[in-house]
Design a binder for these strands. Structure first.
Lengths: 142, 142
DNA sequence: ATAATGTCTCAAGCTAACTTGAGGTCAAGC
DNA sequence: GCTTGACCTCAAGTTAGCTTGAGACATTAT
């Protein structure tokens, strides 16, 4: 377990976030137990970095800052909130599954569009490929 | 080819969008060739509905209104813009693939969290399951 | 007839998630 | 010793994507 700490600038680089975004997250309570040194400078430790990993996962899964904050609060409230946290992740799993489903359908449509416009560009015109075109719904529904 | 038309309310219901959202889309140029009757009421025909299908696909793939509008404009400019439209869909395909990748990684993390909190709830405490816990990065990277 | 329902425009309002700017501290390098 | 760069706070500004509200017609149900 390393005792090392990192500055906000280092963390920003590592997570590919801006410094002001990190300060905003701190302010919004997404990084529990983040402390400042005697000069008032934020010192990120490993626990903070792990929290940030979770934040990134939740954020890119579509969760709002407010809901992520709620989760972080529950986490710091101990065993009393275990059920809420379980429920949150179960809902998130369902959400992710339907997201994946949607994106896969979209990918099929986009693949078709690539083929369509690929042919059209080859032909120099949309006219021919337009004739044989399928509707989007046909493609999306496999 | 049906000649039928639909009111904004009917379309809103069918697409699960609000009436004001549809008006906003129209205003932003996402629905080419949408016409109004003598009373000034929007009449959606099949072409408009198909455009709306595309809008939904692009939107849920993460494209901005502005970029969707650009695509719709290109579409109505004819064969001169075929190359741009092809490029757009090729980029979108890449975007979708990395989106899918990310969400799949997130799903693995969330699955782990479900198992973690499932056990914790059973135990009545996080203490035990915390011992054996893996780091997020381990899970996300398979 | 009258009231409810659905449509319209146009302008203003709203929320989320940041970003920017002013004004200030501190440590390191020249 | 002074400037540069990284950090700080706090308040205000920004952008996207809608939503809401006021005021007005027109068609349908009672």
């Amino acid at each position: 377990m390393s005792q090392e700490t990192y500055t906000i600038g280092q963390v920003a680089t590592r997570f590919n976030l801006s410094v002001s975004t990190l300060r905003y997250y701190d302010q919004e309570g997404l990084i529990p137990n983040l402390t400042k040194d005697q000069a008032g400078i934020r010192r990120f430790n490993n626990e903070n970095l792990e929290a940030l990993q979770v934040v990134e996962c939740l954020k890119t899964s579509g969760m709002s800052i407010k809901d992520i904050k709620q989760f972080m609060q529950w986490s710091s409230e101990g065993d009393e909130t275990l059920a809420q946290r379980l429920t949150l992740f179960q809902k998130l799993r369902e959400h992710l599954e339907s997201q994946l489903d949607l994106l896969e359908r979209n990918l099929r449509v986009v693949d078709y569009k690539c083929a369509y416009y690929g042919q059209a560009v080859e032909d120099g015109t949309e006219a021919r490929v337009k004739q044989t075109g399928q509707s989007i719904r046909e493609i999306a529904n496999h």
